[in-house]
Every structure is written in C-alpha cells, then in structure tokens.
Simulated assay, not measured.
Amino acid sequence: MARRKKIYEGKAKILYEGPEPGTIVQYFKDDATAFNAAKKDVIDGKGVLNNRLSEFFMTGLNQIGVPTHFIRRLNMREQLVRSCEIIPLEIIVRNFAAGSLSKRLGIEEGTQLPRPIVEYCYKDDKLGDPLVTEEHIAAFGWASQQDMDDVLSLALRVNDFMSGLMLGVGIKLVDFKIEIGRVFEGDFQRLVIADEISPDSCRLWDIETGQKLDKDVFRRDLGSLTDAYSEVARRLGVLPQNATQMTKPKLIN
C-alpha cells in the first residue's frame, strides 16, 4: 500500500496514517535497543518476526474476548490497527523474579512469585520510564480509578492467556509488559490492548533448559536474537517446524 503521513517513530516501530479514519498502519523495524536505547543494533528479520508474532497473540486475545487495537496484518512488516489514546503507562506483569525486580528486591532470578505482580511505569524515555504507584497515577490524572480497575483486569487476563499458551509449547512466561489505550465510540470509551505483544516485550525461558528466547539475548549478548525469536515462532506454529535458521525468515501467511 502507498506510504501515508508518518505520525510517530519510536525505537522499534513507525506509525503511519491509516487508509481509513480511526486507523493507523504500524510498521515493525529491525532496530533493537536495550537499556533505554544505550545499546543499539539492527537485527535482520526481527521486525518481520515481531509483526507476525504480535498478530498471533493479538488475534488470540480478540478471539477470547480481550479487546485489542489489532485489525489485520497488511504485509510482512505492517499491520492495521485502531487509533487509540495511549494511557501513559507501561503495565508490567511478573510471574517469576527477573530483571529490575531481582535487582530492586534482591530476589534470585527465576524465583516463582507467590502470585502475579502487576507494576506500573510512567512512559517517559528521558526519565527512564520510572516505576510509579496508583497514587501517582490518580494524583497526576493519567487514568481514573475505574480505568485502573479495568487495566488490572485486562493485564491479568492477558497473563492467563499468554501463560497457558506458552506453557503448551514448553516456554515459561517470566514477565511481560503491555500498553493500553482508550478507544472512543461516540460518548463512550473502552480500553484495549495496544502497541505490540512480542518477544521484545516478554521474558520467555525454555522450561527444560532455562534458555532465554527474548530480548535478554540481545541485552546480555547470549547469541542470535533472530534465532531465539524464530524458535518461539516455530513452537507456536507461526514458522514451519523444519524451517532452517535464516537471517530473514520466511513466514507463513
């Protein structure tokens, strides 16, 4: 499809004006960043994999009644999504200790948490996306109490869906982050899962070996990021099981 007006360019995606009112074209780049973009690289095929995997997860959520902004995939790197007003929060759901939680609380990585823990970070790259509480969210008007009740419910439903899906293919869902947006329908609004769900935004470990199959491969120089993401795609049936390793993977339509 013809290129339209660029709306926004982030670290991993570009947003373009959609073909119809209320739509956006979301383009997945091959750029990889870590530590608030202090570490950068271009990984051939990463955007293709994330586009296809995010389509797979968003479609599954839509099918079980968890609303998302996803409409359809347009091509290997682009998908059509509903325009929404993003709540300026990253919602993090943790099932096992890892990353910043382990550092903050001194809990060994891989420790199973007594229950899923939901955390909120204020979306601001210049500030390093600081951790905030519901008190901050209410005080600064980022979301209402009803919004936050709905956000929590959506986050836990996504966790249930993703945990079961990954368990079925031998992968442990350690944690993940999502963004949530407001979609306006006349005088009413509803909250939907927005942005993406992919190995860029999840921690995924092989249940048997503990092998990391997410962006920690890039963060910690543990090997090929494309190989890790391709392994997740293969297990989920997004890539054929006998696909050979390749830098620019061919995906199933």
Rank of each mutant, 00 (worst) to 15 (best):
E134S: 12
F161N: 06
L101W: 10
V151E: 02
P116T: 02
L49E: 03
D31F: 10
V42H: 12
V81Y: 06
Y8H: 12
T226E: 07
Q26P: 01
E9C: 02
R157C: 00
E20Q: 15
I137E: 05
L101S: 03
V183K: 13
E85V: 11
V118W: 00
A143R: 09
G128Y: 03
S224M: 05
P249C: 07
V48H: 05
A2I: 15
C202W: 09
E119P: 01
K11Q: 05
S54Y: 01
S224K: 01
L53T: 02
L213D: 01
D147P: 06
E55A: 12
S83P: 02
A194C: 08
G99P: 05
G106A: 08
N95K: 10
D187R: 14
E85C: 03
D30R: 08
V48L: 09
P19T: 08
I107S: 00
G164K: 07
A139C: 07
V42M: 13
M246W: 04
K172P: 05
F56G: 03
L156G: 00
V81H: 11
A2L: 13
Q189H: 14
I91S: 01
D187C: 12
K250C: 13
L131W: 06
D31I: 11
K250F: 11
K248D: 11
N51V: 00
F28E: 05
I193M: 01
T226M: 05
L236F: 08
A97V: 12
A98Q: 12
G181K: 07
T23D: 11
I137T: 07
A228G: 07
R4V: 03
A34K: 08
P116I: 01
R234N: 04
K46L: 06
E185D: 15
D129V: 00
A139W: 11
M162T: 14
I178W: 05
L173C: 07
A98R: 08
N51D: 04
V174T: 10
R115A: 14
L127C: 04
N253G: 10
D147E: 14
L105Y: 14
Q211S: 13
Q26S: 09
I107C: 07
K212D: 00
S201A: 12
A34G: 12
D175W: 09
D195S: 07
A143N: 11
P199S: 06
V174F: 10
E134K: 15
